[in-house]
Design a protein around this nucleic acid. Sequence first.
DNA 1: CTGTATCCACAATGATACTG
DNA 2: CAGTATCATTGTGGATACAG
Lengths: 138, 138
Amino acid sequence: MSAGHTAVTTPAAADPVISCETPQDECGVRDVLDRLGDKWSVYVVVELASGVLRFKELQRRIPGDISQRMLTVTVRRLERDGLVKRTVYPTIPPQVEYELTEMGHSLTHLVKALSDWSIGHRPAIAAARASYDAAQRP
Amino acid sequence: MSAGHTAVTTPAAADPVISCETPQDECGVRDVLDRLGDKWSVYVVVELASGVLRFKELQRRIPGDISQRMLTVTVRRLERDGLVKRTVYPTIPPQVEYELTEMGHSLTHLVKALSDWSIGHRPAIAAARASYDAAQRP
DNA sequence: CTGTATCCACAATGATACTG
DNA sequence: CAGTATCATTGTGGATACAG
């Protein structure tokens, strides 16, 4: 080990949660996180998890009033990432169907786990926030 | 079923990934997603997963050069949510240790799953993007 | 060392109007 | 219906200076 700095908090350095070749690497986790992190992608995946939907129907089902523009942007990104398949029927009026790809469906399991965790820990998080806020404003 | 609109894409409406009381509800999933979605929280959780770390050491380990300000903001949010415990030793110079709470550690499993999925599907996502981009620019 | 306080740049989102 | 284009607004993050 290199000397030269205090060893006060030399950490366990146990099993890393994300293992990369280089420490400064992100292993592409950010790619997925960016998609999960934007405001609407998760909801699109969630809605499409149960079946094929047209644009307008998808828009109606997503909680929180997603704008036409943002739904377009979001499904395009998901399509580009290979998570969503877009099928255009050249009818009048136009009809476009969206569905998850196989990879998209595999993400569903993660979203489900995320959802379960969120719901399960919601009270604890709320309590922690209340406690923290109370401590900050005596 | 209500008549009045085409039943072209009546979806399966199978098992919902996220089940809420009201369709417009989010079940607090967004609370967690907001934390997972910001630029640094996941990396803080990842680094703290392997042990206790001081501020500066945490900053050094996080990939991508997090600024002092953003690290402070991030750990404060995590602390408020009850995911991180902050311990201050009133020494000179000051010494502050960060560690995951039990709840924080439980999140680690999710992050691990996320990481695994990301790494596993990284090539597929890259291929999908390349394919999509190629199709857009003939 | 571990912060806090400002100010600033830019990306993400939203509102609106228009089109095939 | 399913978009695209444009503009306005907001949120998030980064740079910097300063403090206990």
